[in-house]
């Protein structure tokens, strides 16, 4: 295998892997956050090596903004991060019998 072929395989592999991760995070934000949180928790144990613990901390997902469409970024109207413990800025529909 020539050097070019090896370099090419590495570049393509990294691009495809990176694209898959990006698409996964964008299209399934909830699932990816849960997976990252669980990976981070399992790595960030006291008995792990400092390298793995650091990796675990890096993988810790940031708090979701919870303001706008889940992971879409389409409209550009997403607001800033709400305060901790704030109720999610969601207004689900509630049906109540009409008062007569």
């Amino acid at each position: 295998m020539s050097t070019f072929a090896v370099v090419q395989a590495v570049i393509i592999g990294l691009l495809v892997f990176g694209s898959a991760c990006y698409a996964f995070r964008k299209l399934l934000p909830g699932v990816s956050t849960r997976m990252l949180a669980s990976a981070s928790a399992s790595l960030n144990k006291p008995w792990r090596s400092s390298l793995l613990q650091r990796l675990g901390r890096r993988l810790q997902p940031k708090q979701a903004t919870g303001n706008c469409g889940d992971g879409c970024g389409t409209c550009g109207t997403c607001g800033p991060t709400p305060p901790k413990n704030a109720r999610p800025d969601v207004q689900p529909l509630e049906f109540r019998p009409r008062q007569r």
Binding site: V16, S19, A20, A23, K26, G73, T74, G76
Partner: peptide, 21 residues
């Protein structure tokens, strides 16, 4: 400018990723 940024961000983000895949 905001609309252009949103569109270009999509092109350079999710559209690029899906095109590569």
């Amino acid at each position: 400018w905001e609309r252009a940024k949103i569109f270009l961000k999509r092109v350079g983000g999710i559209i690029l990723a899906l095109t590569v895949l």
